[in-house]
């Protein structure tokens, strides 16, 4: 099932609930699937020194990032028995409460789908060259760093 072509993972702005719903709907024809797992990363309104985050402005080393996403996908297909896998990440401005990362894994059984989803999210956070500027209400900002 592994796809060798490097895909573009990036979506301009937030990932909409409609995109997520459509993605689920598209899998209804794949009746060998018995379990999906979904991870949604949402921009949180952190309060830092009295100022509240309003949005994250994402940028990336896009060409390298898409290659790294591809390597992570391939390694997940090797490790887990998946039917399919979809990853989307935002670039540009995503406001608090909006979705910036959508990871969707599907398998015959729940265990593989759930373990693969967790693996993908951890790998993405650690390895993909994506950068985030947390923008506050007064237009000042700070650079986000993954924990």
């Amino acid at each position: 099932m592994a796809d060798k072509k490097v895909k573009n993972v990036f979506v301009e702005g937030p990932i909409t609930p409609e995109k997520i719903a459509n993605s689920i709907a598209h899998h209804q024809v794949k009746t060998n699937i018995g379990a999906h797992d979904i991870f949604l990363g949402q921009v949180r309104a952190d309060v830092i020194e009295g100022k509240t985050v309003q949005a994250i402005d994402y940028s990336a080393y896009e060409e390298m990032a898409n290659k790294v996403f591809h390597e992570i996908r391939e390694s997940a297909f090797d490790k887990f028995d998946l039917t399919c896998m979809h990853i989307y990440h935002s670039k540009g401005l995503v406001k608090t409460g909006e979705i910036c990362l959508f990871v969707f894994t599907s398998s015959a059984h729940r265990k593989e789908a759930m373990e693969a989803c967790r693996y993908l999210v951890e790998e993405i956070k650690a390895k993909v060259p994506i950068f985030g500027k947390e923008v506050f209400e007064d237009a000042s900002f700070q650079w986000k760093v993954n924990q």
């Binding site: 990362l101 956070k125 760093v145």
Partner: peptide
């Protein structure tokens, strides 16, 4: 050239070199 490099790796003429601050994806 779009691969993370180690401290002892050699550079070559015309390499594409990127300086990457901490990652913040997700």
């Amino acid at each position: 050239n779009q691969q993370l490099a180690g401290e002892t790796d050699q550079l070559n003429e015309n390499d594409e070199v990127a300086l990457l601050p901490p990652f913040a994806g997700g």
